[in-house]
Amino acid sequence: MPLTASSKKKSAPVARNELKVLLVDDDSFQLEMISEVLKSLGITDITLASSGAQALQTMAGRPQPFHLLVMDLHMPGMDGFQFMESVAKTGYQGALIIVSGQSADVMRAASLVAELRRFTLLGSVPKPVGRSALSALISKLA
């Protein structure tokens, strides 16, 4: 299970129970499952979005920015690559974790795109998302 990380800027640590997380996935089962994993890691402020467009709307309407985006790559309408492009244009300063059932090559490509768009990429995790893999990535942030 490849985990990649960027050595980009690191913001001040935030306690897990204070992290504001936006979870983006078109699969309601995955949203629920990953949300439960995040809760088991002590993260309580979790906002769910079932599409890239809904996530962008949520981000625009929120007075305080999210510390972390956890996003799927394969979504109808706006895939993860298009979502990253749109989020980069907003000036998002938080961190990013990519979760996907796509091949290792696609995951590597997505990680490269995230780094080129200057995201603070904590890493990528294949689905199904395991608690230990997600915890290891989040520990880089909080």
Results as ranks from 00 to 15, higher is better:
residue 2 P to R: 07
residue 3 L to S: 11
residue 5 A to V: 07
residue 8 K to C: 07
residue 10 K to V: 13
residue 11 S to T: 13
residue 12 A to T: 14
residue 13 P to H: 03
residue 13 P to Q: 05
residue 16 R to I: 10
residue 16 R to Y: 13
residue 18 E to D: 15
residue 23 L to G: 04
residue 25 D to C: 11
residue 26 D to P: 12
residue 26 D to Y: 10
residue 27 D to V: 13
residue 28 S to G: 03
residue 28 S to L: 15
residue 29 F to D: 15
residue 29 F to R: 14
residue 29 F to M: 13
residue 30 Q to C: 11
residue 31 L to T: 05
residue 31 L to G: 05
residue 35 S to I: 11
residue 35 S to C: 14
residue 36 E to P: 00
residue 36 E to M: 13
residue 38 L to T: 06
residue 41 L to H: 08
residue 42 G to F: 09
residue 42 G to K: 12
residue 46 I to D: 11
residue 47 T to C: 07
residue 48 L to V: 07
residue 49 A to M: 08
residue 49 A to I: 05
residue 53 A to V: 14
residue 54 Q to W: 00
residue 54 Q to K: 14
residue 54 Q to L: 10
residue 55 A to D: 09
residue 58 T to L: 13
residue 61 G to K: 14
residue 63 P to F: 04
residue 64 Q to K: 15
residue 66 F to H: 05
residue 66 F to A: 08
residue 67 H to F: 08
residue 67 H to M: 06
residue 67 H to V: 04
residue 68 L to A: 08
residue 71 M to C: 13
residue 72 D to L: 06
residue 72 D to M: 03
residue 72 D to R: 02
residue 75 M to K: 02
residue 79 D to L: 07
residue 80 G to F: 03
residue 81 F to K: 10
residue 82 Q to N: 09
residue 83 F to S: 07
residue 83 F to Y: 12
residue 84 M to Y: 04
residue 86 S to Y: 03
residue 86 S to C: 07
residue 87 V to E: 00
residue 88 A to C: 01
residue 90 T to E: 01
residue 93 Q to W: 00
residue 94 G to E: 01
residue 95 A to H: 02
residue 97 I to A: 01
residue 98 I to L: 08
residue 99 V to E: 01
residue 101 G to E: 02
residue 102 Q to L: 07
residue 103 S to C: 03
residue 104 A to I: 14
residue 104 A to P: 09
residue 104 A to H: 09
residue 106 V to Y: 02
residue 108 R to K: 11
residue 109 A to W: 05
residue 110 A to F: 07
residue 113 V to W: 03
residue 114 A to F: 05
residue 115 E to P: 01
residue 115 E to C: 11
residue 115 E to L: 10
residue 115 E to Y: 03
residue 116 L to T: 12
residue 117 R to Y: 11
residue 118 R to C: 11
residue 118 R to E: 15
residue 120 T to C: 09
residue 120 T to Q: 14
residue 120 T to D: 11
residue 121 L to K: 05
residue 122 L to T: 09
residue 124 S to L: 08
residue 124 S to V: 10
residue 124 S to M: 09
residue 126 P to D: 15
residue 127 K to H: 08
residue 129 V to A: 07
residue 129 V to P: 10
residue 130 G to M: 12
residue 130 G to P: 06
residue 131 R to M: 10
residue 133 A to H: 08
residue 133 A to W: 00
residue 136 A to Q: 13
residue 137 L to Y: 04
residue 138 I to F: 02
residue 140 K to W: 01
residue 142 A to C: 12
